[in-house]
Amino acid sequence: MIDPEIIKINIEQEIDGFERTTLTRLLSSFESIELEAIEKRKLFLKKKSKSFDPDIDDVGRIEEDVYFEEVNHFLIEQELKQEFLNSTAVWLFHLFERQKIRAFGSADTDILKPLLAKDNYKLDSCSDWKLLNKELRTVANVIKHGFDGNSGYNLNQYFSNLIVNESVVLNKSDIQRYIKALRGFWTKALEN
């Protein structure tokens, strides 16, 4: 049997590592999207100015091309950032599932409820549990499998604020809420 204190320490380290890696290291790489787009614009103009021929080249066309060079870079990077944030939620939910299995031998709610109730921890009244097991679970399932089925219905019904143009759109504060709930859940669940 694994020492519960070791499990608690490992879970805390996993959450810290997850937060550090996803929000500090990886998400921060998207902070310079606008500056990169402007740089793309400048490089495009510099390249065009070296080969500019007033008899052949249309200045209006060049201005249009440079505009789309900047905008396309920005849009592609924004889309990648959104994909990253959404994938981060899926990754976090999988981490939660693995932690439950390691700590309790199961991730099944029907097994966890009576197990935790022995320590006076009522899952149904815990806001952290609801956020993780309802919202995050639903979000992760829709990101992985699409809007068809129960998860898509539940997301539309209960968490429509996370949908924009029929897509799941999470932001950094959503991921931070999920991480905070994960910490809160484990603090309560491993208290005894």
Rank of each mutant, 00 (worst) to 15 (best):
K8P: 02
N10W: 11
I11A: 02
E12Y: 03
Q13V: 09
E14C: 10
D16Y: 08
T21W: 12
T21N: 08
L23F: 07
S29V: 11
F30L: 09
E36K: 12
A37I: 02
I38H: 09
I38W: 03
I38M: 12
K40F: 02
K42P: 07
E64N: 09
D65I: 07
V90E: 13
W91K: 14
F93I: 05
H94E: 14
F96T: 01
I101A: 07
G105E: 05
D110Y: 13
P114C: 05
L116D: 00
N120R: 11
Y121H: 15
L123S: 06
L123F: 15
S127Y: 06
W129Y: 15
N133M: 04
E135P: 00
I143W: 06
K144L: 11
D148F: 11
L155P: 03
F159K: 09
F159N: 10
N165V: 10
E166F: 11
E166V: 04
S167V: 03
V168E: 00
V169M: 05
L170A: 04
S173D: 06
Q176A: 04
I179W: 00
L182D: 02
L182Y: 06
W186H: 00
K188C: 05
K188Y: 11
A189L: 01
A189Q: 02
L190H: 10
E191Q: 14
E191F: 14
